[in-house]
Nucleic acid binder design. Sequence first.
DNA 1: CAAAATCAATTGTCAGACAAATAAAAGTCT
DNA 2: AGACTTTTATTTGTCTGACAATTGATTTTG
Lengths: 243, 243
Amino acid sequence: MKKTTPPKQGDLSAQIAGSIRDAIIAGDLIVDARLPSEAELAEQFEVSRPTVREALKRLAAQALIRTQRGATGGAFVNHLKYPDAYAQQITTSTLLLSMNEVSIVTACEARFALERACTRLSAERRSADHLATMRAEMHRQSQPGLSDEAFCASDVAFHRALVDGAQNPVMSYQLAGAVEAMQPLMNMITFTARSRERIVALHGQIADALEAQNASDADAALTALEAYTVSLAQDVLDARAQR
Amino acid sequence: MKKTTPPKQGDLSAQIAGSIRDAIIAGDLIVDARLPSEAELAEQFEVSRPTVREALKRLAAQALIRTQRGATGGAFVNHLKYPDAYAQQITTSTLLLSMNEVSIVTACEARFALERACTRLSAERRSADHLATMRAEMHRQSQPGLSDEAFCASDVAFHRALVDGAQNPVMSYQLAGAVEAMQPLMNMITFTARSRERIVALHGQIADALEAQNASDADAALTALEAYTVSLAQDVLDARAQR
DNA sequence: CAAAATCAATTGTCAGACAAATAAAAGTCT
DNA sequence: AGACTTTTATTTGTCTGACAATTGATTTTG
């Protein structure tokens, strides 16, 4: 946390946040360690307290620290848990997709390629619980009165169960963006044209394959789902171009 | 950006940051749109300027906005570019791995599964440039005087070229954490025991397969590399346990 | 007309103060 | 003595007001 060779780029609060972040990543500050009080940090870095506070807020925004008021309060190095990392990943992925004119084809290709990376593990290890979740979501997707938003949410839940079935938390984390950030995209593009029946049928193939621990069948079903999604998107875009 | 149904959780600065973030994600604030000045925001949200500033710093930490001083300055919705998202992903992944006692086996499994998801696309589309990068990194890895750190960095560069060969930026982004965050882990674990020769040989198999557009051979080589990495980690851990 | 000086708006930083929360310490009653 | 209450000290959260630094726009000047 010392001011060793500060690269002096950006604002003071950014520099200070960088110093503390580096200290955390380097392991100089371990989880649950308490940082000096804001007043002490201000003295150490030779800045005012508001500046220190801005730096701490930057770190808090990345879930690197948490703060607590009171006598024994202060800023503590946060144990970065999976849900926090998930949320960040989803936010970042959503923004990245919405701001970079990524084609649906490219996004779909990435999403399904990553999801297929889970099939082998998921076929091998999925628990009864994961299978039950898939079946339940399929059942929900078959209900006639379901809104488009709810259908998409259920779709996401189904695929998350597939990914979680691999029983590898690192995998689940990495896939969070790919699976969840697609929801608004699919919502916007395909909800007018898609056949829920067909999607549920493909979901059924995937669930059956995973239950039978047949990874290549699950692979094939995912590929078919990808092809269907891409063709839907193509149709919608064509219709839009003609109009 | 209105204070519509504020969930009132956490600090004021967190609430305000959340409001603005939601507005950006919902598309109410488009890229390069200028936010009101800090004074105006303070008035709108009925808080003081330091509180607004803390909120803005939170958003800046996530690269959602950028600020500019001067007459026409202010806070602008930032175009989230891939490099920014990469950096965030790598930081988050690194912390997640270091703070959650993830076993080497789990991390390796995820990493190589994701990387194998790229082989089909990369075999199909890799450019001469990607192949040249791989060869160059392999050449560097063969030099005797290379430090462990430099070898690892080159290793990462090689795998990044593999991933980038898929010519899918969404894929490259999603893989950034998996590929780059492993570097410190591998560095710490296997640098004592590994045979560079063997690793370079496997890299050669991968590069050859991609050049021949043979995805399944590349797959097999990656699987072999995974097995070798895991066995190395196992050896090191066993030796550590005996000591 | 072009260059220089001025201006105005905005963020960056600072100082000091008070409020709110919180746990430890001290005090009080049974 | 022990349990409960009150006080106190520490720390973060927020506010007010001010000034410096930056930078584009405006005005002045050669």
